[in-house]
Design a protein around this nucleic acid. Sequence first.
DNA 1: GTGTTCACG
DNA 2: GACGTACGTGAACACC
Length: 928
Amino acid sequence: MATTKPVDETSHVYLIDGSGYIFRAYHALPPLTRTDGTPTGAVQGFCNMLWKLLEDLKGDDQPSHLAVIFDHSGKTFRNDLYDLYKANRPPAPEDLIPQFSIIRDATRAFGTPCVELENYEADDIIATYARQAEALGADVTIVSSDKDLMQLVTDKVSMFDAMKNKRIQVPEVMEKFGVGPDKVIDIQSLAGDSVDNVPGVPGIGVKTAALLINEYGDLDTLLERAGEIKQKGRREKLLAHAEDARISRDLVTLKLDAPMPERLEEFGLAEPDPDVLVPFLREMEFRSFTRKVEEALGGPRADETGDATAPINRDDYECVTTMEALERWIAKSFEAGQIAVDTETDALSSTASGLVGISLATAPGRACYIPLAHVDPQGTGDMFDTGAAPEQIPMDQALKVLKPLLEDPAVLKIGQNFKYDLGVLSRYGIDVAPYDDTMLISYVMEAGLHGHGMDALAELHLGHTCIPFKEICGTGKNQITFDKVPLDKATLYAAEDADITLRLWEILKPALVAKKMATVYETLERPMADVLSKMERVGIKVDPDQLNRLSSDFGQKMMAAEAEAHEAAGRDFNVASPKQIGEILFGEMGLPGGKKTKTGAWSTDAAVLDQLAAEGHALPVALLEYRQFAKLKSTYSDSLFAHINRDTKRVHTSFSLAATTTGRLSSTEPNLQNIPIRTEAGRQIREVFIAEPGHVLVAADYSQVELRLLAHIANVESLKQAFRDGTDIHAMTASEVFGVPIEGMDPMVRRKAKAINFGVIYGISAFGLANQIGVKRDEAKAFIDAYFEKFPGIRAYMDEMKAKAAETGYVETIFGRRAHFPGIRDKNPNMRMFAERQAINAPIQGSAADVIRRAMIRMDDALNAANLDAKMLLQVHDELVFEVPENQAADLIALTAKVMGEACSPALELSVPLVVDAKAGRTWGEAH
DNA sequence: GTGTTCACG
DNA sequence: GACGTACGTGAACACC
């Protein structure tokens, strides 16, 4: 921060014209944006200039005092003098506007006073301070190249053009205006200024004005004696526009008695505080600039404890191969109280991989790798392998001493995507606790802004590029598993992961608290790692024989459909190629093509083929048939079979906690959240998911959670009442919108209302609704209008979410989870409208995600308390699937209804009931 | 690697 | 007045 120090003859006061800086910075830099979409180009340019100035001034010209002065937004007293003043200025560019206030923050972050005053321009404040400093005997430098300030130049006051690195003193002013600084005002009054819309005298420029002033002495004398001028044109112009010249003089004359918001003495120069400036620059994501500043301000503050942003030095990592060294690291870990932990395995799946090694970090830069199951890198790995494995601690011995550390309640274990490591270690008998997860911390704060994998976070927060996995293990068919990586290379990679994780935690955890997102993290995210890790490990049983039967059945149907398609087309072609299908249908057969894909190719999706089939063509029917069975076979029956775990004979999906913008989970390898249910053929896949003998599957799903939450969030009394009464909500909507009684309602009318209800959740548009229910666009629009008429609260909700997103860049769920939409500020209207629909949908979808997360987190304790041997297997957004001994099914159904139904309390009292439908069956299909 | 299609909520 | 649009995912395949 600036200090207070008196101004006297020894002082040198620097006054920076901030507004001039801003515009120069804006035009000098490309339009950078931060990851959240905030434009930052001008901010960076400004920071660069300010930093460079401060650096350049070290030495002879070292300022004693320094301040940045800004124009205040809005009108000034000059507009009262002349209402056209600066009237022809175009408005500031749209992406500059949000940067004005950030630049003021930047100035303060540099520890530099930041001055502005309502009703005055920066120039007036600069003028007032300059004269005051001069009167105290100080030297003054005005950092600006604005000619309007040249009237202030004296032998004590000079200007400095930071761009051209040029000092402007009396001779330079003389050169520009042809007169001394004391006559600059007179020149400007005559010459005017088209940029500021100062009228001046038409036809008189700087050259002529200088001539006249040098002849007549000053403006007043000139105007008095204008009649004496010989040249007719000049004489008449001056006589006619004398008043304009006087107004111009009032406009260009700088105030020397502006009120001073701060005393000059308070501008005492001080070195920027790295603890303020560095975090600011980092938040702005000026990565290389941040590092530069860091180094200049005393270098990275790496000490014994290490600093998260200190340079990463992989040479300091230790490969731990003796018990003695391991004991040393364990002791250090207990001492540190918090360590980063990362596991290396021989495959990507936490449920089907062997532990290969563990890395630890006790402080930034202090990390080790403990290899446990590395083999000879040159070895073939088969029974003829004679190569010796590298020297390492036997796994059981190492785990025996690591277990107390990893389970110690006083030592926090920090991981990145820790669900993975929890799962691996759990299979080796270690239940890690307590823990933090940097991926989840990042997700809670910045969902929607960027990915949350380690590479992305390291790049973002540390400006560090991690060693690519490919570089260690290779790629394609030459890829090796981690246990074959030589220990030196493995150590670099593995220890770096732990090091980075610890550094990320040191940066992210305080930010989590500062942003008040710790509650969301603690109640909705962190516990989920445990819950999901357990579900993944349990897996779900599938019937392998049944899968095989389905695969061959689907295969036969594919072949039949393919033959039919070839027959209908009159030639052979690749039925799986949308490109060839398009060529045949819309080229050779000359059918009228409907939709195009976004690349301009003919669309051949199911909607298009359905349409053509309805028109009586045979080929699209065969293609639809083929596609259906090809999908079922490749994506489901074949894939599920391939995913059966060799040891458990079950299928173990992996749930991603930080993949979606809204808070939903996703499921991969295999995706068990999109198992078919809508068609008869597809439902056969569901029948393959079975329970162990003596057990049943129970599927418990929320009934219309999203609509219920919408009713609650948008506070629509009639909808809430309908849910309380247990009314059929779509019928009720139809009745309201179309004015028909619920009794004996036409199912088509109800279908339309249902589509509207869903449309609302998705951020409805007439086009989308028309498309969905097959009506004309204006008809759809009429439905929507009628809907909003009946439920004005919904429209208010939508407007509110759009406004909130536009203002803050994010929207929130009922439990405070945030979803960010950088596209909301995109200059492309389509992108913006897309972001608006997302912003409407996210609080609803995200709140539903929060609700089921709360239920899942409580479920384990609830099952234990009820003495049920049920296991939670899957989550499908609004549904939980359990496996339970047959005789406990009824109890489990009652329990799920209770736990899921009461998931919001006590944190929140929902104004609508949450209804849960639960059913038991021998297969997943049966449980529906 | 990108685009298209299609499975789910 | 034209433009392109329902929200959120993951996997397989064709094609470059």
